[in-house]
Design a protein around this nucleic acid. Structure first.
Length: 191
DNA sequence: CGAATGATATACT
DNA sequence: GTATATCATTCGA
């Protein structure tokens, strides 16, 4: 079943990040459907988080979706090459989000292989946030769209996530964020 | 290990 | 309006 808006609009972005592990991220563009099991996430706690684009409630045209009510996508281009997909959480004017860092292919694998220009479904297919977004066909044009619509959504397929299979750790790639970089806001699903 | 690559924010004229 | 620094990364040596 598709996750309801109430899932995203809760006040605890770290908890939502943890609970997204084992959920299924689905996209459907131009009649092509792909789905992947979320295996790694990171929470970005908005105004109090130096690593967030919205640190100190910095509101710009790019970060605008972060300030909308939860349950929409926030996509942005990093390093000029990679699209990063985030799930916006919490109520309006609270810029919390969860970055999807990695996933495991479930459906539409041939489509993902084509998008990633790869011939085999190896580990690199959905390893890392840029690769994950590319495999699912997510682009900056999808920033701000609803996760309750028919293009991008997240399903709960009742995948069993054992309590011991979730590992929390410091985030990566955000060293510039000083002490906030070491917060345990990263969650990994052990395989 | 290091280059690639472009939108975005910020600081200028 | 134009310029420049910066980046929530990846891939190929």
């Amino acid at each position: 079943m598709k996750l309801p808006q109430s899932f995203y609009r809760r006040d605890d972005v770290v908890r939502i990040g943890r609970e997204l592990l084992g959920k299924v991220l689905c996209t459907r563009f131009s009649g092509q459907t792909t789905a992947a099991l979320i295996t790694e996430t990171e929470a970005y706690a908005g105004s109090s988080d130096r690593a967030s684009h919205a640190y100190g409630n910095r509101r710009t045209k790019r970060t605008e979706p972060l300030f909308a009510a939860g349950g929409i996508a926030y996509v942005y281009l990093c390093y000029g090459i990679h699209h990063l997909f985030n799930v916006v959480t919490n109520e309006a004017d609270v810029p919390h989000a969860v970055l999807i860092r990695a996933a495991a292919p479930l459906q539409g694998i041939d489509i993902m292989l084509y998008r990633r220009s790869r011939s085999e479904a190896d580990k690199a297919l959905l390893a890392g946030p840029g690769s994950t977004a590319q495999a699912l066909g997510i682009d900056t044009v999808h920033s701000g769209i609803s996760l309750s619509g028919s293009q991008i959504w997240i399903e709960d397929r009742n995948t069993v996530v054992k309590p011991g299979s979730i590992v929390a750790g410091p985030r990566v790639g955000v060293d510039y964020a000083a002490e906030d970089a070491s917060l345990p806001y990263r969650f990994i699903l052990k395989q």
